[in-house]
Each structure stands twice: as structure tokens, then as C-alpha cells.
């Protein structure tokens, strides 16, 4: 992939100077340490700050939620996974397509700056090295944007090094007791910081069930039961809507394999109600499988 930064800057500059959009969401280098971080610019003169490199791992689509109540038009740069996030928001009625100018970037796969930092920091046990593709990119089936007004870069092949759902199959092969033990162990380490929820593009409810106090649906203690409840609730809430961007797993400070549950549901929904993959195209009136009903929906559980 050639350096797309000049293109990114040119497009952002034009969008702003021609008044096509009010602001642009992209990536820039943090002044303090030169890391790639999300950026929001409002003037064409700031377009020179924007960049695109292998560390632009953040899904910017979630950031659109901050603007859902405004009427501003927004230019946004998206990779394959991020573009599915935009379909997610549009389909969920959270952000109108008309207010967006989408610049798609065919994604060559990202590196995880935070993982590199953790490795260098001495704060973490085992971490991925700098040269490796980010964990969330290693099971990517759709590196190319699915919705855009303009496309940058060359089409990329999927990065499925492993058999799709091989991780899920390993869990499915466990007995119920073993599986229960496996997930209890994992979720016992959750610190309930809600980073996985807040970074999630499918978690776009204005009032989250986990923040409600009357009634309080899930207890606030970090006990096995409450933690398990939190993760099971969340997985079921995003079932059929998760666009597999992997941000939840990327941001988890406890390093929990959060995509396991999501992928299990993606696999099941595809088999039961599919073929279906969330957020691959934006169609008028389309609803995710668990948000709609068809007479032929399988119901073997009804006796």
C-alpha cells in the first residue's frame, strides 16, 4: 500500500473548504508522542494534521454517536470494519447516511499501538510484538469498505489465517461443565470498566441497561455472577448486530477474549437465520435477524 496520507489530507481539505461537510473525523499524530490517534478537524487548514498509517486501528464510526443530535454534515474515513459500523448506525436509526461523506480505505491490516506500548511498558505479562498484525485484524473477512462515497487504496484480500470460527469450535467442543468453568475464569478477571461497551458501535442505546438504577438490572459487584451477567447481557444485546470490528477485545485492559461470545452468536445466527453477516450493505427497511420475524424462522425450542 502506498502512503495514503497526502490523499487523505487533500480530500479532507477539499471537503471542508468547499463546505461539503462541517467537520472531518480521521486520524492524526498525537503531538506528545507521535502516536496515531483519532482526530476531529473543522477547518481546511487543519487537514495537514491528518494521516493514515498502519496504526489507525480505532473504529471512528462510534464517534458519530456524539454528533447524532446535531445536524452537522460529517466527513469520515473508514476501513472495512469501520464502514460496517456506519451501516450498523444507519440501520439502527442512529445516524442518517445523508449527513455523511464517507471516504473508504481498503485496509491492509492494522497494528495495535497499545499492544506495542504494553509490551514496551513492562506493565503487562505477555504481549504481541510490534511486527505483528493486531489481534482484531487476524480474523478479518471484510478489509474493504462496504459503503463509501469515495474509495482509497487497492482492494485487499481477507486475512483469514485460521479457519473461520475455529476459536468458537474449540469452545463448542467442551462439555457444559468445562465451558462454564472456562467462562467463569475469564469473566472473573473483568474489572467492569465498560470500555468494551463504550467503544462498541452496536452499543448505541442512549440509556444503557447497565447504567439503570431503577430497577438495577445487573449488580455492581465484581462477582462471578454479576460479571457473567454483564457479558452475557451485552453479547445478547449485540447479537446479530455485532459487525466484528473487534474493538471490544482490543480495548479490554484485562485482555479478555471478548469476541469469543460475539463470534459464537455470529456463527449461530448465520446458521439459524442466514446466510447473514451484519452490516454488509445498507438497504431501506432492512433489519437484523433478531429484530425481525419471519414465519419460517426456526423454532425447535418450542415444544
Amino acid at each position: 500500500m502506498g502512503d495514503l496520507t497526502p490523499e487523505v489530507q487533500r480530500i479532507a481539505g477539499n471537503l471542508l473548504s468547499q463546505g461539503q461537510v462541517d467537520l472531518v473525523l480521521g486520524w492524526a499524530k498525537a503531538p506528545s508522542n507521535g502516536q496515531s490517534v483519532p482526530a476531529c478537524i473543522r477547518q481546511a487548514e487543519q487537514a495537514g494534521r491528518l494521516i493514515f498509517d498502519q496504526y489507525c486501528i480505532h473504529n471512528l464510526a462510534t464517534g458519530l454517536l456524539d454528533h447524532r443530535d446535531s445536524s452537522e454534515r460529517i466527513g469520515i474515513f473508514v476501513k472495512g470494519c469501520d464502514s460496517r459500523g456506519i451501516v450498523r448506525l444507519a440501520e439502527d436509526g442512529q445516524f442518517p447516511r445523508e449527513r455523511l461523506y464517507i471516504v473508504g480505505i481498503c485496509c491492509p491490516g492494522m497494528k495495535d499501538q497499545a499492544a506495542c506500548d504494553r509490551a514496551a511498558s513492562g506493565l503487562f505479562g505477555e504481549t504481541a510484538g510490534d511486527s505483528e498484525l493486531a489481534g482484531k485484524c487476524r480474523q478479518c473477512a471484510h478489509p474493504n469498505p462496504v459503503i463509501y462515497d469515495e474509495l482509497l487504496g487497492d482492494q485487499q484480500p481477507p486475512f483469514l489465517n485460521d479457519v473461520r470460527f475455529s476459536d468458537v469450535q474449540r469452545i463448542e467442543a467442551m462439555g457444559i461443565g468445562e465451558r462454564g468453568e472456562f467462562f467463569s475464569q475469564i469473566f472473573s478477571k473483568c474489572i467492569r470498566c465498560y470500555a468494551c461497551r463504550n467503544i462498541c458501535v452496536a452499543c448505541n442505546c442512549r440509556q444503557c441497561i447497565f447504567d439503570e438504577t431503577r430497577p438495577q438490572w445487573v449488580g455492581r459487584s465484581t462477582s462471578a455472577a454479576d460479571n457473567m451477567m454483564y457479558h452475557a447481557f451485552r453479547a445478547m444485546h449485540v447479537a446479530g448486530r455485532c459487525v466484528e470490528c473487534g474493538e471490544c477485545e482490543r480495548v479490554c485492559p484485562a485482555g479478555l477474549p471478548l469476541m469469543l461470545l460475539n463470534r459464537k452468536l455470529i456463527k449461530d445466527i448465520d446458521q439459524l437465520f442466514g446466510p447473514y453477516e451484519a452490516g454488509l450493505s445498507l438497504e431501506e427497511g432492512a433489519r437484523p435477524p433478531l429484530s425481525s420475524y419471519r414465519v419460517e424462522d426456526p423454532d425447535p425450542f418450542v415444544r
Binding site: V37, P38, C40, T62, G63, D66, I191, R192, C193, Y194, A195, R197, N198, I199, G219, R220, S221, V251, P253
Partner: peptide, 25 residues
């Protein structure tokens, strides 16, 4: 704060942050 997501990572991994709540089970 433009890109702060209001998650609690920073507060929970911080050795000084000490805010708490009292709850009932």
C-alpha cells in the same frame, strides 16, 4: 475530551483513584 469514551479504564487502573459507591445485594 473529544475522543474520551467515558469508560472507566483510567480510573480503575489508576493507583490513586478512590471513588466508591455503596450498594445492596
Amino acid at each position: 475530551s473529544t475522543f474520551c469514551m467515558n469508560c472507566g479504564v483510567c480510573t480503575y487502573i489508576c493507583p490513586v483513584c478512590h471513588c466508591f459507591d455503596i450498594q445492596v445485594m
